[in-house]
């Protein structure tokens, strides 16, 4: 279900909407006014940026209403013996010395993404996922998990006879970096009745050649595990 529809539905019941956009922001066109959510969190390292930095967007009315979550330099307006008042937004939430280097780096990341163009990024990733999906579908031992309309830039799969952690190690040796495990959704894995899954994801820097390498390396797993 698209986030905008979820937001509209929740708002119609008076529910505040907080979106974890860490996975969405690098791959989708974002318009906070259009989405109308109350909060939206992003993780900079997932947007070609530095680690250790994130951004929390929040509607002004909530940010004004909420108390600061931590104290420190720069977030105070006035401190008296019996009362305290906080600085204006965003200072109220930016206690202490900020991660200056990361902030400057992230600014460059956004400029980089804008220079490529989010439409181009989306098209590039959709093309790659479609190519990868076709490729892996032809690979008999591979079982792809999920193929919804408007699929994101990921290919989740299992390989008959090889545990995802063994797949990840072998692929890594072949220079193909994927993730294996529960991917923060253990409940879904229980429902699918699989112990774990392997997941390849694509970004600006990937090419069809990379997906060919992924497929070749999956075949290497089969070879190492003596599978047909």
């Amino acid at each position: 279900m698209p986030v905008k529809e979820i937001t509209d539905l929740a708002h119609s019941k008076g529910i505040i909407v907080v979106i974890d956009g860490c996975q969405g922001a690098p791959h989708l066109k974002l318009d906070m006014q259009d989405l109308d959510c109350d909060f939206y969190a992003i993780s900079c390292h997932k947007m070609y940026g530095p680690t250790g930095l994130g951004v929390l967007y929040g509607k002004k009315k909530w940010l004004e209403e909420l108390p600061p979550y931590q104290g420190g330099g720069g977030m105070i307006r006035e401190v008296k013996k019996d009362k305290i008042s906080y600085g204006d937004l965003p200072n109220k939430y930016e206690a202490g010395t900020m991660a200056t280097a990361q902030v400057i780096a992230f600014d460059q990341s956004i400029k980089f993404m804008e220079s490529v163009g989010i439409e181009n990024i989306m098209k590039h990733e959709a093309d790659l996922v479609e190519y990868g999906q076709e490729l892996l579908q032809k690979n008999n031992s591979v079982k792809l998990i999920g193929s919804p309309k408007n699929k994101g830039g990921v290919l989740s799969f299992t390989l008959e006879g090889v545990h995802p952690h063994d797949i990840a190690t072998i692929l890594d040796e072949d220079g193909v970096a994927i993730r294996a495990g529960h991917h923060c959704c253990q409940i879904l894995h229980d429902k699918l009745n699989i112990p774990a899954s392997a997941r390849a994801s694509v970004g600006i820097y990937n090419t069809k050649d990379d997906l060919d390498k992924l497929n070749d390396s999956i075949n290497n797993c089969k070879k190492i595990f003596n599978l047909k």
Binding site: D166, T169, I170, E173, I224, F225, N226
Partner: peptide
């Protein structure tokens, strides 16, 4: 690093 060393026959078996 050597995958053959990690995934020896006896381990696979």
């Amino acid at each position: 690093m050597n995958l053959k060393e990690l995934y020896q026959e006896i381990i696979l078996e």
